[in-house]
Design a protein around this nucleic acid. Structure first.
Lengths: 342, 342
DNA sequence: CGCTTGTTTGTTATCGATAACAATGCATGA
DNA sequence: TCATGCATTGTTATCGATAACAAACAAGCG
């Protein structure tokens, strides 16, 4: 008990005793056991974070943002990679609850994640969703304005002359996919361009999905002049499919997508994209979660919608007949559209 | 006690009782507390992973590899971002120990991390280092053959005609920096090219460091024909500095580095690099750690050195007078050097 | 019938930290 | 001298799960 008092800096310990305790701690390499402390205090100072994939350049900043915010508040982060798999996601959730994390930050795999999250909310377990919302679920969340972003992206394509724009999207079981599709349709409608079913291809939102979807688009009799893919992984697959067919971007086909990639943006500023504030998803999400954990949050759920930026580069604006924004000759041109600066 | 027996599937419980317990568990949303279980069993089934930065495209695969390997063995991962900061790293280590993680996977910030790690080893606490080794420390580790990689990279530059090759390296307090510098010198020596002090610039291994170091190189009276940067972050800064000076890669300056970036490799296969098996660092590191935790490891430390691949693309081979490997005209050329395939 | 054996369930103590309370020693003042 | 206050230290019980052991009861057997 006296040792406990010394460690926690409580008053009422003789100076001489305190010195002796500190000596003993030093001599024995004694480190207090936070686990045991957690048993008493009923909180672990740990939060869980589940993302589909840390390697995805959208999610790794989310992870960093969350980890940094958590640490600054004295919390630790248990990281889980759901691989976008519902079963795995559910296992992770159960495991985290069993580990008594104080709260959960979740980037859901799909709408079906709802079934794993609902029981937590019913028990008043602190949960904050990031990136995607879940239908009919009243829960704190941080998302971006996908519809508006997609609309602006497609409006940009239209403004520079594209009228036949394909869209690679997901299986329509994610809020982001639905919203981006909605933005795409709104932009088309706003420009009096008819919506053509065959130009919208649903797929898994990974590289191979983007590849296959683009192959399917390239089998159309009348090819579109530009492709808008739903995220940064699908665009990679799309690029591969285009290359295999000998199509160059942007000369033969415009290509735009959601999510910027920091590295890429500097080394090869090429893709025109909608840039989401990924790190903020993590830091703000963690902040909301910590507020809820500490009871500062109130009963009402908070839904934060972040705005994204349209970053215009060169991947969609040099089609024959469609003027480029900049002449593309000198190597210096590659600089335009760069975001980061040292 | 009977409940405990049911949960752990032990024998000696009446079927009728078992059914009643299960009903109660269901009705009460009861979830066993692993924390309390850990108090008894003295292990948490949790490992700590400290990396300088999850967003770095080298480290995010390390994290994924470690997380996946850990999960498959029933372990969880506490992720920490040291930001390459020694103080923060030390705090994280103490915190993880205090949380009673069963072991620690560490990508050390620098040689000085030694002082944080040594006390752990003395207490026989399971530790595995990844990416960098620490001087005079007998510890399990997974690193790559940096010297050989650097040598091959510079030998390649020499083979295609470069003789004045600058090197952006770190403050010489990391094993990777030293080894890569050694490889650089060996390659020069092997080609009878004198080592010139002013062509080697030490810096912090981040974007801004690469930027400043390259600026310094560009202030030389006689410019080199190629720059070799120590990793994927410095190369980004180098690219920015080159662009600011209106120098094009590879026409005005060759540029090569350590670490490939998956995204970049497909979207814009441009940089000639040494590709390290990043994910394997994580998965193998976790495997070594789990073996040590379970006592299967034996007293001797295991030091695993992974080989890396030279990936030749177009960032160093078109200097006037230095022939390109491929003529650079058709868009299809951009495909050469691509690693990933769907 | 009494003893052993096996099945099932319940008690107690433990992990490590700590809240709540109890005990100890010493000094002060009535 | 003895009660009282104060500073300091020690005890007991607790968090939740479980190891080790104990108890309760039925069945089988000589």
């Amino acid at each position: 008990m006296t040792v406990s008092r010394v460690i926690n800096g409580r008053s009422g310990v003789d100076e001489e005793t305190q010195r002796r305790v500190e000596e003993a701690i030093e001599a024995l390499d004694y480190v207090p056991n936070r686990i045991a402390r957690g048993l008493v205090s009923q909180h672990t100072a740990t939060i869980g974070l589940i993302v589909p994939d840390v390697v995805n350049p959208f999610f790794s900043p989310v992870v960093r943002g969350a980890e940094t915010a958590a640490r600054k508040a004295g919390y630790r982060l248990l990281l889980c990679n759901s691989e976008g798999d519902l079963r795995l996601e559910r296992e992770y959730i159960e495991d985290l609850v069993s580990h008594r994390v104080d709260g959960l930050l979740l980037a859901p795999a799909s709408d079906h994640s709802r079934h794993s999250v609902f029981p937590l909310l019913r028990r008043n377990f602190p949960v904050v969703l990031v990136d995607r919302s879940l239908p009919d679920l009243d829960c704190d969340l941080v998302v971006s304005d996908s519809a508006s972003g997609a609309r602006r992206l497609v409006e940009h394509l239209v403004a520079i002359g594209h009228r036949e724009i394909a869209h690679v999207t997901d299986a329509e079981d994610t809020s982001t996919g639905r919203e981006r599709l909605r933005g795409y349709r709104e932009a088309l409608a706003g420009a009096d361009i008819p919506y053509r079913e065959e130009l919208v291809v649903r797929t898994t939102v990974d590289q191979i999905g983007g590849y296959r979807a683009t192959q399917q688009i390239l089998m159309l009799d009348r090819l579109p002049t530009a492709i808008f893919t739903v995220n940064n992984m699908t665009v990679v697959g799309a690029m591969q499919a285009l290359r295999e067919r000998g199509l160059s971007v942007p000369d033969d086909m415009g290509l735009v997508c959601f999510d910027d990639v920091e590295h890429l943006a500097v080394l090869s500023p090429f893709l025109t994209v909608i840039d989401q504030p990924a790190e903020t998803f993590g830091s703000l999400g963690a902040q909301l979660l910590l507020e809820r954990i500490s009871g500062k949050a109130g009963a009402r759920s908070r839904r934060i919608v972040l705005q994204c930026d349209l970053v215009v580069r060169q991947s969609c604006c040099s089609r024959s007949g469609i003027p480029r924004r900049q002449p593309s000759s000198a190597p210096l041109d590659v600089m335009s559209g760069t975001k980061a600066d040292p």
